[in-house]
């Protein structure tokens, strides 16, 4: 393995709430990501996955521990990382083009240059012809592709995806998965994907990390050795379903206890 591009070192996060007991969201997380690696993090609700994404991006500060990108500690959001959020976080009063240019304009990239960069990623995301449309005129799947294009436009080394397809219907979701793989193949970014869907994690990733819940801890790290490129038909192979079953068994108890049900083991 090459020198890691991203390291999470003993990161813990406790939320202090006035008048209520504090919540330990993450407990000593240690993770390491190789350049160009596609890693998914799965786990029950409340396992602090989204908190970890925000700490990696620098939107939140860890209570202890640190995040390093190429050996340098992260203190705030930076151009080497970009996030695609689950919620529709496009600016409703800006066109597709202006939304994709947003990060570049914030970074004071000259207008003409920002425009041509944005056009490249609009084309890559399959949004050619929709440059002047507004978010409310697009479908959920297209809006999320604008979000991906906007994140890629700032040319981050690391792409952080926080359940980007959770709000989409299952068919759109499958198409988006293959589109994402295509983009990843073209751009060779390091990707950290948070998802609830084990199948999605196995299909996309080189490695799947399983989190346990309350507080979030790394329970297992599973290398997905399926060959690439991966066609959708791969989801019906026994190698694929074997991985899915294995990971599901790892988190089933976590999900049950999160739901207040009796555990099976």
């Amino acid at each position: 393995m090459n020198a890691p591009i991203l390291e999470v070192r003993a990161v813990s996060k406790t939320f202090q709430r006035t008048g209520k007991p504090s919540v330990e969201a993450l407990a000593r997380i240690d993770l390491s990501f190789a350049p160009g690696e596609f890693v998914s993090i799965v786990g029950a609700s409340g396992s602090g996955k989204s908190t970890l994404i925000r700490i990696i991006d620098g939107l939140l500060q860890p209570t202890s521990g640190e995040v390093c990108v190429e050996g340098k500690p992260v203190t705030s959001p930076g151009p080497d990382r970009a996030v695609v959020f689950q919620q529709d976080s496009l600016l409703p009063w800006k066109s597709v083009m202006d939304n994709v240019m947003y990060g570049l304009r914030i970074a004071r990239v000259p207008h003409a240059q920002a425009r041509s960069t944005a056009q490249h990623f609009i084309d890559l995301a399959g949004l050619t012809g929709f440059e002047t449309h507004y978010p409310h005129q697009l479908s959920g799947g297209m809006r999320q592709r604008v979000n991906v294009a906007r994140a890629l436009a700032v040319s981050p080394k690391i792409l952080l995806l926080d359940e980007p397809f959770a709000a989409l219907d299952s068919q759109t979701r499958e198409i988006m998965q293959t589109e994402l793989l295509k983009i990843w193949d073209a751009e060779k970014k390091t990707v950290v994907l948070i998802t609830h869907q084990i199948e999605e994690a196995v299909f996309l990733s080189d490695r799947v990390i399983v989190f346990s819940a309350r507080p979030g801890k790394v329970k297992a790290s599973i290398t997905i050795d399926l060959p690439r490129p991966r066609p959708l038909a791969m989801k019906r192979t026994t190698a694929f379903t074997g991985h899915v079953d294995h990971i599901w068994k790892l988190i089933e108890d976590e999900v049950r206890s999160a739901m207040g049900l009796a555990t099976l083991t």
């Binding site: 705030s76 959001p77 930076g78 151009p79 959020f85 600016l91 009063w93 947003y102 914030i106």
Partner: peptide, 25 residues
């Protein structure tokens, strides 16, 4: 709040968040 968080993830300064997100909203 999601719009503000997205702007912050692009490292927008408080004044930039005001002119590009809060005020137009």
């Amino acid at each position: 709040a999601h719009l503000i968080e997205a702007a912050r993830s692009f490292n927008a300064r408080p004044l930039q968040i005001f002119t590009t997100v809060t005020f137009p909203f």
